[in-house]
Computed example of a mutant assay.
Amino acid sequence: MSVLERDRIIDESARQRLRDVRKKGRRFLQNPLSAVGLLIVLTVILTAIFAPVIAPYPADTGDTLHFDQTNEAPSIEHPMGTDTVGRDVLTRVMYGARISLLMGLVVVSIAVAIGVPLGLVAGYLGGWVNTVIMRVTDIFLAIPPVLLALSITAVLTANLWNAMIAIAFGWWTWYARLVQGEVLSVKEEEFVEASESLGASWPRVAFKEILPNIVAPLTVKATLDMGAVILVGAALSFLGLGAQPPTPTWGRMISIGRDHVTSQWWLATFPGLAISFTVLGFNLLGDGLRDMFDVEVEE
Rank of each mutant, 00 (worst) to 15 (best):
G242P: 03
L105V: 15
I214N: 00
I40H: 05
D294L: 00
L289I: 02
T153I: 13
T223S: 11
L273R: 03
S100R: 05
R135K: 13
G286V: 00
E193I: 01
E193W: 02
I40V: 14
G104D: 05
T278H: 00
G127N: 05
F277Y: 13
S201F: 07
E77K: 14
P52S: 10
T131W: 14
A97T: 13
I9Q: 06
R26Q: 13
W266A: 03
I10D: 07
Q244N: 01
E182A: 14
L236V: 02
T84W: 11
G25W: 11
D291S: 07
A51G: 05
A194Q: 02
N213D: 11
Q69R: 15
T61A: 13
V297Y: 09
F191Q: 08
Q30Y: 11
V279I: 11
P246T: 04
G257T: 09
P271I: 11
D259S: 14
T137G: 11
M94H: 06
P245L: 09
G242K: 01
Y175P: 07
S109D: 10
I9C: 01
S2W: 08
K208N: 13
T223M: 07
Q16H: 07
V36A: 15
A234D: 06
F169K: 00
N213M: 10
V93K: 10
R8P: 08
Q30R: 15
G81S: 08
V112I: 15
V205W: 01
Q244K: 06
A234T: 06
F282I: 00
L211M: 12
V41K: 02
G242H: 01
L118H: 04
S100A: 15
S276E: 00
A235H: 01
L156W: 12
A35Q: 11
E196Y: 04
Q244F: 09
M103P: 01
N213S: 12
Q69I: 10
I10M: 12
R22W: 12
I165N: 02
A55K: 05
I114R: 07
G126E: 10
E193D: 13
V107G: 10
V183D: 02
T173Y: 03
L118S: 03
L273V: 15
V93I: 14
V297C: 09
W171I: 09
V155C: 09
W128Q: 12
G281I: 05
L90Q: 13
A268G: 11
S185M: 12
L273F: 15
M80T: 06
I45S: 12
T219L: 15
I254M: 15
E182L: 12
T70N: 02
R204P: 08
P74R: 10
S255M: 10
D60Y: 00
G96L: 08
